[in-house]
């Protein structure tokens, strides 16, 4: 049997990856439609780059984060600030308590991306810095600020959460 064509290989990869990419996109955007648009955009750019990409999932994740930053930067200039912004959280449980997703959605884009990469994707500080295009120190301080915000917003509930990555690096 010969090697699978680009389209066969890409189709198989999408089948395995699309749902995970959508979840990552949702963690970043906090909105279904925006997440869907981002995933579509990233799948297309991955298809176009398929032949020169060794690790398509890593490529797609990096593209996802960068595309998210671009869109966010065009919507507002919040990327210039690492301050927590005060916006209404769309994610609330039926009893109107703030969910973790809701608290996450209150964070500025760079903090959201940092939390997603560190705690959802289990990337190391170094790899996270690579994706975000910043220093490891910036990743650490951004993570710290993000967790402080989540702790502040979720209160006692957050104390029951263990902010530990799969690689064992407790923040």
């Amino acid at each position: 049997m010969g090697r699978p064509s680009r389209e066969d290989a890409f189709t198989a990869w999408v089948g395995d990856t699309q749902h995970q990419l959508y979840r990552k996109a949702y963690l970043l955007t906090g909105e279904r439609e925006s997440a869907r648009d981002l995933v579509q955009q990233v799948l297309l750019s991955t298809y176009l780059a398929w032949r020169r990409v060794d690790h398509p999932t890593a490529y797609a994740t990096t593209s996802l984060v960068r595309a998210f930053f671009k869109v966010a930067a065009h919507r507002r200039r919040e990327l210039l600030s690492d301050d927590v912004i005060d916006v209404a959280a769309p994610h609330r449980a039926p009893d109107d308590t703030l969910t973790l997703l809701g608290a996450l959605a209150e964070l500025p884009p760079r903090m959201r991306a940092t939390v997603m990469l560190r705690f959802w994707d289990d990337l190391s500080v170094r790899d996270t810095a690579g994706v975000l295009g910043c220093s490891e120190g910036t990743v650490k301080s951004t993570t710290s600020k993000a967790l402080a915000h989540l702790r502040d917003r979720l209160g006692e509930e957050f104390t029951g959460l263990d902010a530990t990555t799969a690689t064992g690096a407790t923040r």
Binding site: T11, Y22, R23
Partner: peptide, 20 residues
């Protein structure tokens, strides 16, 4: 674990239609 809690909340997310 933070990730487990996020996963639990994301379970409510409706699956995306196949974009292939």
């Amino acid at each position: 674990d933070l990730r487990d809690r996020l996963a639990t909340e994301l379970d409510h997310l409706e699956p995306l239609d196949d974009l292939t």
